[in-house]
Amino acid sequence: MSGRLEGKVAVITGVGGGIGYQAASLFAQEGAKLVCADVNDQAGKAAVAKVVAAGGEAVYVHCDVSKEFDVKAMVATAEEKFGKLNIMFNNAGIMHPKDDNAETTEESVWDMTMNINLKGVWFGCKHAIPAMRRAGGGSIINTASFVAVMGAATPQLAYTASKGGVLAMSRELAIVHARENIRVNAICPGPLHTPLLMDFLNTEEKKERRLVHLPMGRFGEAIEIAQGALFLASDDASYVTGTDFMVDGGLRAAYVTPVGETKSIPPNSNRE
């Protein structure tokens, strides 16, 4: 029985951990050949080694997504190594610990966040689209966030602005390229039990302040976002483009959350 991505070639950025690693593992299990990228070579190579050890076909490339030359070379690797590009998962991103409100966020933090989270996604789309034309179409998945559609009283202004930009850009690209068989969607994770957020929410008080607003009473797991990305990457989503695909435990839908205890992790979760 063939997988949902059999015969497809995918590029995934930020593969060194969290969503990126889980997506690489899942995409490979479903038959995709992978070009996996990260700026952290040690983590990225280790992730690819795990994918290959499990029977997947993957290569690693160093890529700082804020540098266009790196992104262009990353996409070229997919065509040179595997002959085409069908899936682009622009997942790499940062959440700077000094990102705060409009008055106190430093310009350097703002610029770094925009260069990686927004410009990096633009570079990924810019170079993936011509490759996908050559392949006869494809799927671009851009990692945005629930903060792209909601405000929060715990500010992370540069991050929020960058993810709002990712969402708006994804919508426009989806419409521009809809008749070229190129689908573009933004996946919007809710708060996740990953190092990116846990390093930002570095006290129990901060964690509980987030958990109280989550209808499911827990943080999401990286594998749960990867499963959403798999759907968007696959032909199962052939009529899905321009969406803000919410994978947020019901957060966006909530006005008042249910009565009951919160849980730091779900039962039987994959926390690797």
Rank of each mutant, 00 (worst) to 15 (best):
M1A: 09
S2T: 04
G3F: 00
G3D: 02
I12T: 01
G17V: 07
G18N: 12
Y21T: 05
Y21R: 12
L26Q: 11
A28I: 02
A32V: 09
A32F: 05
K33I: 13
V35G: 02
V39Q: 04
N40Y: 00
A43E: 01
A46K: 02
A47C: 05
A49D: 10
K50Q: 08
V51P: 01
V51C: 00
A53L: 15
E57L: 13
S66M: 02
D70N: 08
D70Y: 11
D70K: 03
A76F: 08
T77Y: 07
E80L: 10
K81S: 02
F82C: 00
K84R: 12
K84H: 05
K84V: 08
N91Y: 07
I94N: 03
H96F: 09
D100V: 04
A102N: 11
T105V: 10
E107A: 15
E107D: 13
S108F: 08
S108T: 01
W110Q: 00
M112S: 15
M114Q: 12
N117R: 08
K119Q: 04
G120F: 06
F123N: 11
C125G: 12
A131N: 12
A131R: 06
M132K: 03
M132N: 03
R134L: 05
A135L: 04
A135C: 02
G137N: 04
G137K: 03
A144Q: 13
F146A: 01
A148F: 07
A148D: 07
M150W: 10
M150V: 05
G151R: 04
A153H: 11
Q156R: 04
A158T: 01
A158P: 04
T160G: 05
T160R: 02
G165Q: 10
V166W: 01
L167G: 02
A168V: 15
L173R: 07
V176H: 15
N181I: 09
V184I: 03
A186T: 13
A186I: 02
P189E: 14
G190H: 01
H193C: 07
P195M: 00
P195T: 07
D199P: 03
N202Q: 00
E204G: 04
E205W: 09
K206W: 11
K206N: 06
E208F: 14
E208Y: 15
R210H: 06
V212P: 04
H213S: 07
M216F: 11
A222F: 07
I225F: 09
I225W: 07
A229T: 06
A229S: 01
A229V: 07
L230G: 04
L230E: 00
L232E: 11
D235V: 10
D236C: 13
A237W: 11
Y239D: 15
T241K: 03
G242D: 09
T243H: 07
V247M: 00
V247R: 01
R252A: 11
A253V: 11
V256M: 12
G260A: 05
E261Y: 09
E261I: 06
T262Q: 14
S264V: 14
I265E: 15
P266S: 14
